[in-house]
Nucleic acid binder design. Structure first.
Length: 266
DNA sequence: AATGGTGTCAACCGCCCTCCG
DNA sequence: CCGGAGGGCGGTTGACACCAT
């Protein structure tokens, strides 16, 4: 299938790691206008990113209630069990782990659990429920009203534990890998939560409304107004703790004092 | 201290599905 | 019914950090 030209205006789209100011712009825009069209939104939000890139960043890291950091042993067990039943259907697995994203689970599986699962295959086999026992669950898809109906033959993850499922990872190994992930996890855990709280309190916006008044719909396609930008600037500038945290997460971030970019002018 | 190997994870790519005109 | 556009999903990759030598 042919994909639409990603950038009809011939503006070079930025790729790679997202900067703090890009994160702020995206969060601020979505808090203000909600999610209406991933393709058009980046332009209106002042981002030189593809819609897909914005969507990925939002869904996997910026949206509220994302749980970061170490997976618990229970979560590990759930992932292994669900993977046995569902295969590489990461989104379906993620639907059973509140706050976890499909990307995170996929990474976690590839880097750690795959080995464990192979080791423990024999153990899992003895723990499987009889074939005639099935459970069903539905997972709501975020943007649509459709549901995923999944049926498989095994017990609910919470009801049975898999003996030795997480024993393949030593404590020291877990600590090492956790340390490796620390910098980014801290950012998404603490700072993004603060950004949301701070912005929402200041802007008094509604988010997640299924249907918006016509006035708001019109606003959605527009760039942030000067008034919005001033509010955001004041809100952000006043939050010294947030500034400190961001500095620690983005040690290499350049604080631009050119005056052209309010996001970085402290 | 330098260097090569390895692990981790954020982000991109491309295919597929659904929706809508 | 058909085709295009948008969005979702899984596979893959490149950058980076850590560790061992």
């Amino acid at each position: 299938m042919m994909m639409r030209a990603p950038n009809s205006d011939q503006i070079p789209l930025k790729k790679g790691t997202w900067s703090p100011e890009e994160d702020h712009k995206l969060i601020a825009y979505i808090n203000r206008y909600g999610i209406w069209n991933w393709t058009e939104m980046p332009k209106a939000a002042g981002l030189s990113r593809s819609g897909k890139s914005c969507r990925l960043r939002w869904m996997n890291y910026l949206r509220p209630n994302i749980k970061r950091g170490n997976f618990t042993e229970k979560e590990e067990e759930t992932i292994i069990r669900l993977h046995e039943m569902l295969g590489n259907r990461w989104s379906a697995i993620a639907a059973r782990l509140p706050g976890r994203t499909d990307n995170e689970i996929k990474n976690y599986w590839h880097t750690r659990l795959r080995k464990i699962s192979k080791k423990n295959n024999v153990v899992h086999a003895t723990n499987k429920l009889p074939d005639n026992q099935t459970i069903n669950f539905q997972t709501e898809r975020s943007n649509t009203s459709e549901t995923d109906h999944v049926s498989f033959s095994a017990g609910a993850p919470e009801e049975k534990s898999i003996s030795g499922s997480s024993s393949g990872i030593s404590k020291s190994s877990k600590q090492t890998t956790a340390a490796a992930a620390n910098s980014s996890s801290n950012y998404t855990n603490v700072v993004i939560k603060d950004i949301h709280k701070s912005l929402q309190a200041t802007l008094e916006v509604d988010t997640g409304l299924p249907e918006l008044p016509g006035e708001v719909k019109i606003l959605r396609g527009q760039p942030l107004s000067t008034e919005d930008l001033e509010i955001l600037e004041n809100c952000y500038a006043m939050d010294t703790e947030l500034m400190w945290l961001e500095g620690s997460i983005y040690p290499d971030a350049v604080q631009n004092d050119s005056g052209s970019d309010f996001w970085m002018n402290f």
